[in-house]
């Protein structure tokens, strides 16, 4: 069920910026005041300052909330000028964020076998999700897909939360191929729930697998958006109930509600 949380716009300070590979940076953000409540699958709209021509905020998944340290972690992959600007941030820099936005993943009411499938930087929201599942007494299985071993993100962090399986397109780590080709998925009747985030073709392939095997499945979409608040209606996804905003009705959708050709 959708849980309404108060939204905030606030300045956060970069406590640490860690390059994970040449196109991906982990930003650990904090402030003096306690961070607002937020949960796995929600996102932040991050303002891009001092970048000629760039106007709009960038939606970035909540990667991890470390309450003990009052830290919010964001994973940023550099794809354009906005994210390249974010990647230039250094310790002590200030970032204006609007959060928490969106509905987040639906947590199971009782323990079950969960598979968390991520592709590329799409693994970002799955770490916090894994932590929340762990807190409910589950040990999730992560299936992380990447192009090469170099692109596999946060292996150690995921490993502390659950079992980690990897596929790489060039076979340089884990099994060779796409996530949907992993031997884990050839076992029969293994998982009760699948959560997925990554490039759309990958999510569609996972959704197709879930549909065929009649497994409950949620996907997290990243449609191009402006406001992040359900006001501009730019980021819509076609659902069985018509166009719905990814920013407020999503970004997480159950595949049953979508009109994907699966």
């Amino acid at each position: 069920m959708q849980q309404i949380m108060k939204k905030h716009v606030c300045d956060l300070t970069v406590a640490e910026a860690v390059w994970l590979h040449e196109r991906c940076i982990l930003l650990k953000l904090t402030r003096d005041e306690v961070l607002p409540p937020m949960k796995a699958g929600q996102f932040a709209e991050v303002r891009i300052d001092d970048t000629p021509g760039v106007l709009l905020r960038r939606p970035i998944s909540i990667h991890r909330v470390v309450r003990e340290k009052n830290e919010l972690w964001l994973l940023v992959q550099t794809v354009g000028r906005g994210t390249q600007r974010l990647a230039m941030l250094q310790n002590g820099d200030v970032l204006n964020v609007m959060l928490p936005l969106g509905n987040g993943f639906t947590l199971p009411e009782s323990p079950c076998r969960t598979l968390l499938v991520g592709g590329g930087v799409g693994v970002a929201p799955l770490l916090q999700l894994g932590v929340e599942l762990r807190a409910l007494g589950m040990r999730p299985t992560f299936l992380l897909g990447a192009r090469t071993a170099n692109d596999v993100l946060q292996m150690r962090e995921f490993g502390q939360v659950g079992e980690v399986c990897v596929t790489t397109e060039d076979g340089s780590m884990g099994e060779s191929g796409f996530v949907t080709q992993h031997s884990l998925l050839k076992r029969k009747d293994t998982f009760d729930r699948i959560y997925c985030c990554g490039p759309k073709p990958m999510m569609m392939a996972v959704a197709r697998y879930a549909h065929e095997h009649e497994v409950w499945c949620e996907v997290s979409l990243e449609n191009r958006m402006a406001c992040g608040l359900g006001a501009c209606l730019c980021c819509v996804e076609k659902t069985k109930e018509g166009h719905r905003c990814v920013c407020t009705d999503g970004p997480v959708f159950n595949i049953c509600d979508l009109t994907w050709p699966i």
Partner: peptide, 23 residues
């Protein structure tokens, strides 16, 4: 009105384009 199909938005230098279509 269902509005126009996605994608409906493009960022442009110091601006944006929208094609929501009065959903």
């Amino acid at each position: 009105r269902e509005g126009n199909p996605y994608p409906r938005m493009a960022e442009t230098p110091m601006g944006m384009l929208n094609a929501v279509g009065i959903q």
